[in-house]
Design a protein around this nucleic acid. Sequence first.
DNA 1: ATGGGTCCT
DNA 2: AGGACCC
Length: 602
Amino acid sequence: MAVETERRWRNILTSQMIPEACGEGKLSEPSTARAAASSPELLAASRCILAIDMDCFYAQCEEIRHPHLKGRPVGVQQKMLVITSNYAARACGIKKGDSLQVVREKCPEITICNGEDLTFYGELSQRAFDVAARWSSKVEKLGLDEVFVDVTELVAERFRALDDPEACLRLASTGHEYPKESESGSSEVRVRQGDWKDLDDAHRCWARLALASEICREIREAILSEIGLTSSAGISVSKQLAKMVSSWKKPSQQTLFLPTADRLGHLLPDDLPVQKVPGIGFASTQKLHELGVRTTGEVLSAVVPEGEEYGRLLTEFDAGALRTMKALCLGIDASPVKASGAPKTCSVQDSFWQGPVRTDVQVRDNLLALAQKLITKIRSDERMYGYRPIPTFSLSLMHAPSSDGGAARRGRKQMQLGSFQIARQPGEQGDDERLQGQIADRAFALFRKLVPAEEPFVLHILNLQVGFGEALGAQRRLSFGASAPSATASAAAQLQAPVEDIELTDSDGDGEAGRNQTPPVSTERPDAVATLVSMGFAQDRAQRALAQCCDVPRAVEMLLAGGPSSSPTRLPRRDVSSRAEKRQRLNCPAPEASGAIIDLLD
DNA sequence: ATGGGTCCT
DNA sequence: AGGACCC
């Protein structure tokens, strides 16, 4: 028995798993000598990366939201287009950007869901992310429906278990292996300690990826059983390669890619159009086309530094960009999987291609509508990531192309906000309406800076964006002991908490939340305290703020935001007048004591 | 297409 | 502030 499995293992290692040439006919241009050049270092590389991609994500979300739709044709609509559909609908021939009209003709049975509000999708996406995060701390989000997971560590851990002479590991890759037609999942071997020593890079790499493929299956299974989402995935040594094979078998399947020269030749044939390479986008493709370069093979022959074409490439790209592009065409991508935290920005945008915006009144109306959407999104963000301060706010817009042939101008204007408190009492909804008006006012002020009064304009896009700061209470471990909630603990609590339980700092800063996170009064840094007192802050508040913040500017921000305080806030004297002035200039209503406050200190 | 996001100059 | 990439 043992002999038998050992023999199978040898077989698998030597011939079947890593054949010298896979597939018979050549699908496209034969693999290049250049691919052979990159293969050794890829096989020697030690990373194991998963690219997991939810199948027709929005449509699946709708099936989860409306269980009776499961398995029946479903389309998701935005504006007048059906932007995606489930596989039942695709079976009727429905394609990605079909108009509502066309879809109804192809499939009268179809149920159309409105997919303009992304809140629910965002929440399921976050849950899928959290599942993956149980296997690795390095999980990177790419849009709502995709994650990269670096499982190198975990693979190494499981690999190490093989060194225990008592422990045998069942080893088999799970799912497909590019570019083989049959699934390899059935092969199963038992490996013992000594076997690993003799492996060459290719076999060792395959063994790691096989372990990774098992981990990948575990993660996808958990996402399916806990959330109900099916996914497809790629397993390889880099984000690029994992991503490129992830879509090879869909839906609900996974593919391992071992970067041998011949397989690379298949995945990145010389005649592959450049835009198929992840990392080479629209702009680069345009520029390359102007230079007569259309395929990866052409990139590779053009990008040799001594060649004559190289000079022409340098007119459009810098040397660094060319190196990156060359590497990608060779299948080399060293970019790390970056642990995605909470989103850093949040934006909303409306476009007006059909009926452009031409008057101040229209601008105001649209900014009001955008402000409403923005608040909704921020609330959803709070639900998922806890309350965070909002230090920046920006408006951007796109003008129509000028009639005399000029290109469409764009503009962006940002303001730093001393604080931008979007807070409310637990369970209370009422303030958001006033907040909406205040945000629209800020936005209009920015608009005025971009487009002076009286100047005519024709707008096609309006966009509002806020930038988040660190979670309150997450300020480094400067403060003492356990009295300040740790970032992770409060984040975890907030993630589970219903809306009403989220710790909110109300604008007066004297709510329960403020009290709970008030650390012991610090007696340190008397000079910094003095600075804050001279700005008009109460001494005790200044001390507490400094205990939570590293530096004076942060402390100022916190104090202006209303916390920390156990007594009613007094605004710093100097600022009262200047703010009133600005308020007048901007024609903004004065914020009321109990309401949300936006301090404008630019 | 649309309406988000990220990172690098 | 703008541009490039991604979904």
